[in-house]
Each structure stands twice: as C-alpha cells, then as structure tokens.
Design a protein around this nucleic acid. Structure first.
Lengths: 142, 142
DNA sequence: AAATTATAGTTACGTCTGTAACTATATCAA
DNA sequence: TTGATATAGTTACAGACGTAACTATAATTT
C-alpha cells in the first residue's frame, strides 16, 4: 500500500510559498526606498541587530551562502554603509561595521519593519503569530 | 519611546531562513535525480497533485510569477513530461497535462518527498509539525 | 621546518530570475 | 460594430544567483 502525497502537508512546498507571500510586502519597502536586494537587506539587518562581525558570522546568522554575503557586503560598502577592518592576528578575516549612514538606513527600515510585522501579527492573531515564531525557531535548530 | 526591532520576531526574516533550510535537503534530490530547478519541481508537483490545468492555475497554486511558470512549463515540455492542448473556445489558454513520463517522475519524487517529510515531522514532533502546517495555511489565506 | 590540510573570502562562468514590454485573443462599452 | 480595456502567456534585457575554482592565510601533521 503506497501512501498518498499531499502538497498541503509537504513542508518545503508550503513553507516556501508562505515565505514568499509574506516577504513580498516588505520587500517592496526596502527595494523602493533604497534599491536593495533581499540579500543586502538581510546582511544590513544582521549587522544592525548583532553589531560588528565577520562575513562568516553573517552567513551563519542569515543562512546566506558565503558568495551572497560577499557580494552583499561589497555592494553595501560601495554605498558607504559599512566599513571593514582587517583583523591583525588573523588576516583572512575582517570585522564588518555599519557606518552612521548604515545605522540610519537600518533604523529607517526597522521602523517600517515593525509596522509591517504588526500588521501580519494582527492578521494572524497574537497567539497564533507567537506560536508560529516559536515553531519556526524550533525548526531552525534541526 | 521607540520599540526595539528584533530579527527573531520578524516574520519575513525568520520564515525565509527556515524555508531555505528545510528546502535544501529535498532540493538536492530533485536536482541530482533530474537536474530540475525549484520552479520546475513546483510546477511538476502541482500538475501531479491537481491534474490538468492552465498556466495561470499553476501560478495561483504555487505562488510563482507567470514568467517562472511559463519558463518551467517550456522546459518540462522539452523533456516530454507534459503536453499542452489549446482551448477551442478561448485560444489564449492551454490545458497542460502530464505525460506518462511526467507522471512517473512525479511519482518517483513524491516517494522521496514522503520520506523526507517524515524525517522533518519526526524531528519536530507530530503535534508541532501539524500545528505548523495549520498556521502556515492560515497565513497563506491572508 | 616543510608539506599538507583547513578556513576566509572573492571571482568567473553559466543559469535563473524580475521587470517591462510585447503578441494574441477575448470582453466590455459607446 | 468599433474602439477601449482586460487577460493569457511569451520574450528581451539586465541583474542576481549557484557552483566551482581560485587566492591568501592559518593550523595541523610529519
């Protein structure tokens, strides 16, 4: 007896669909306001939230591939939103730090992010929203 | 008083990160077995699950942009995994149907999909897994 | 110390994607 | 009926991405 496959219960499919849908609304904001890609936004947000760190740290925290991180860092650097300073004792790595302009772009986007997130939370209901966040966090630690 | 932004509670960010992580494992399967892209797999899966339908239907069900659907359909057609037959009364649309080869690729991948999904379900726990699926479904209908 | 292996990060190349413009057909309005 | 608008789907172009190969440096092994 073979089991039946059901797309609605297939997590990679459902998760991706929902993720894209939820991301759209906020993507418009950072794209229209600053012409940023998703990778760039994710790198900026990680630097804003966790402070100065290496490219590898950013990759670990965002789940972005190191080439995406590298390209995003290069392009954000070109806007003067971050600076790199090479580590003296290990010259392979560099500490990446947001500039004041970078911090202020981050502040501007997080302000919009909080509003956006509230909308989603209201739509879904606070209880369900919080439960969802918890479940996703649990899933990330697999 | 300004609220503090927290990436861990920001749904677009968390959702995308988790989605990519969960998708990786299964992506390897359809990529290595058939050299398919994610869009192609999603189109194939939708045709397999819901049967013959138009490109617009596929787009609605997958959330894929119509250009992605168009390209995926063209490339799956080139493998002889689907056929299109133009509607007689509305010649803008075509009904897309899997061939036997398409059905058998779908069967092969869903078999692997069921196994993969079970692993994730076991990891997360059945109760949590089912709760997560329900919450995502609720979110999709926003 | 020299050779080997591992890690951080970048780059080249081909593929995939997003946007906008386009073709073709159908529907609606005057 | 004609003209205007809407819908289905494709395509061109530029930009983003994934893979693998690469450079540079550090750590480990012999």
């Amino acid at each position: 007896m073979t089991e039946k496959f059901d797309l609605h219960g297939f997590l990679p499919f459902v998760l991706h669909h929902t993720s894209e849908k939820v991301s759209f609304g906020f993507r418009d904001i950072y794209r229209d306001r600053y012409r940023m890609t998703r990778s760039e936004w994710r790198v900026l947000a990680t630097l804003g939230q966790y402070g100065p760190q290496t490219a590898t740290d950013i990759g670990t925290r965002t789940g972005l591939h190191k080439t995406k991180v590298s390209r995003a860092v290069t392009s954000i650097e070109a806007r003067r939103w971050l600076k790199r300073q090479q580590d003296e004792t290990d010259r392979r790595i560099a500490l990446i730090t947001l500039t004041k302009q970078g911090e202020s772009a981050f502040a501007s986007l997080t302000e919009a992010g909080i509003i956006y997130n509230k909308k989603v939370r209201a739509h879904l209901g606070e209880r369900d929203f919080d439960a969802l966040i918890d479940l996703l966090a649990k899933l990330e630690n697999m």
